[in-house]
Nucleic acid binder design. Structure first.
Lengths: 91, 91
DNA sequence: ATCTATGTTTCTATTGACAGAAACATTTTT
DNA sequence: AAAAATGTTTCTGTCAATAGAAACATAGAT
């Protein structure tokens, strides 16, 4: 089995708190903030903030946002589904 | 809610395949290989390979392995539990 | 059609993870 | 205790992600 699959497999068995602990363990602080920023970018893109607006608010560069936009262009993106579910919960 | 918690929350709802897809979406190829290597290091440390042996076999530097060793020193580490579960499955 | 806002790409510089190598610390073997 | 093996830290250099800024592309508004 490839390693990422194995990791996914292990994560799948965990509770929210455990996933949080696992990520905190295996990622550096910087990596976590990188990951968090990508997530925030995806959320704001989904909420139709303009890229320049997002760049200003999250204090990130445009090139990073373009990357996020590419992910969301794939209509089957898991990220897209997850983010939309979060949006719906807030309603 | 802090962002990492929110991400963990979303991941917790996914199947193995979806987690795999999500990680592939949101991480770069390099980041995935970094993460995979860390995982392999943890597994080999748990199997009591010497650090120098691991460094040679996985072609990584010692400083990276020390980091892995620090994670496993925490007896409550989630990673440790996950890795041991995998080991047990193989018996 | 022109102007403006927005999306996308590209350039140079910066930064953090980490390689390679060596030094130092600790544990194990003899 | 001395030697050997292993763990840990430290140093310099490298590389990938990305900041900052500008240029280019496209879509909408007028």
């Amino acid at each position: 089995m490839n390693t990422l699959k194995e990791i996914s497999n292990s994560i799948a068995k965990l509770t929210v708190e455990e996933i949080n602990a696992f990520l905190t363990e295996i990622l550096t602080e910087k990596e976590i903030s990188t990951l968090s920023n990508r997530w925030r970018i995806l959320k704001m893109l989904n909420q139709n903030f303009s890229q320049r607006d997002i760049a200003t608010r999250l204090n990130v560069s445009l090139c990073k946002i373009t990357r996020g936009a590419k992910i969301l262009k794939n209509k089957n993106a898991i990220s897209l589904r997850l983010i939309r579910e979060i949006e719906n919960e807030h309603k």
